[in-house]
């Protein structure tokens, strides 16, 4: 066949393949439809509804008495209600402690369990992952007992080993000391690092071994390899975990709610923004104002996420990307 004939045949193939592609796209769309319907029904419409609610004074117990207040709820949340600002600051303070510790600990575990020098790695991986399968409510209740200042075994061990008074009201009050409570809550979170650890582990195993071999030949030690190969190539995973961690921190709720039903004890330190949102909406039944706080929370989360994405090009390395 001459070249012109080949081109004609290719054209025919292209003509035939066009409707096929069209059909595939529709099939794809068909399979996506349930998700799109779910998104519209369970995310988009509730979001729109919650925005509308934020313009109302709405008590779900007496829905007939709801009335339109315009942007009064927004003005109250942004300019008048000091608790919104304070609870946001508390959330950021807690995140600035728990997020680095949580990410660092899960990365440390992943590196440890990726090491050639560790024996029975599958067993250790399973053991470190197992606590994250325990429901967080149970975890929090267990730690509540473990950290009890009178009978918790952590204080008893500390007192027995070091001799310093750890037990009792003069001892280490993990959950009632304003300086310690965020660290105690961070400890609860460390039980759940199994998921993050697995993702880091997958990222570590995706780093080409020839890079380490080449570095070894060049005389690079473990620390240099970690600094120049492991961490740079792991930055996409770190970035992913960071974004998820920030969003999870803004939604931090379960531990303070289980431990003190959201009273904020000690001294309001654990009344995080999500707890405050819950209290306004579902305890005080100020559903309109609660919706406003939820939207503010969404906007703050969006801004932080956009900022993180903005910085990503300076520190996140994608091997497939042209630089």
């Amino acid at each position: 066949m001459n070249e012109i004939g080949e081109l004609r045949n290719m054209g025919k193939v292209a003509e035939k393949s066009a409707p096929k592609f069209d059909s595939e796209a529709k099939w794809g769309l068909g399979f996506l439809t349930p998700w799109i319907i779910g998104f519209i029904l369970f995310y988009l419409l509730p979001m729109i509804a919650s925005f509308v609610l934020s313009l109302y004074d709405f008590n779900p117990a007496v829905p007939d008495e709801a009335f339109f207040v315009g942007f009064d709820n927004w003005r109250r949340a942004i300019f008048e209600d000091e608790e919104v600002r304070l609870s946001l600051v508390r959330t950021i303070r807690f995140a600035s402690i728990s997020l680095p510790i949580g990410l660092g600990f899960s990365l440390y575990l992943a590196i440890l369990l990726n090491s050639k020098n560790v024996i029975a790695k599958p067993i250790f991986r399973a053991l470190f992952y197992m606590p994250s399968m325990i429901p967080m409510v149970a975890t929090v209740l267990i730690w509540n007992g473990v950290l009890n200042e009178q009978t918790g075994w952590i204080n008893i061990i500390i007192e027995n080993i070091t001799g310093i008074q750890a037990v009792g009201t003069e001892g280490i009050r993990w959950l009632n000391d304003v300086d310690l409570v965020y660290y105690a809550y961070t400890m609860f979170g460390l039980w759940g690092v199994g998921g993050a650890m697995i993702i880091f582990l997958a990222g570590l195993q995706g780093i080409p071994t020839e890079l380490y071999e080449a570095a070894k030949i060049d005389g690079a030690g473990w620390l240099r390899q970690l600094r120049s190969i492991t961490l740079p190539l792991l930055t996409p995973v770190i970035f992913y975990q960071l974004v998820l961690g920030v969003i999870a921190s803004l939604q931090y709720f379960l531990a303070p709610f289980v431990l003190n039903r959201g009273t904020g004890a000690p001294e309001g330190m654990t009344r995080f923004i999500y707890v405050y949102f819950y209290k306004q909406s579902f305890t005080f039944f100020n559903m309109g104002y609660g919706s406003t706080i939820a939207w503010l929370l969404f906007i703050v989360g969006l801004i932080i996420t956009v900022l993180l994405f903005g910085t990503a090009r300076y520190w996140v390395y994608y091997s497939s990307e042209e630089r």
Partner: peptide, 11 residues
Amino acid sequence: FDTLATQIAAG
């Protein structure tokens, strides 16, 4: 309390 409030609000 939350459940009842939700039920009332939802008609």
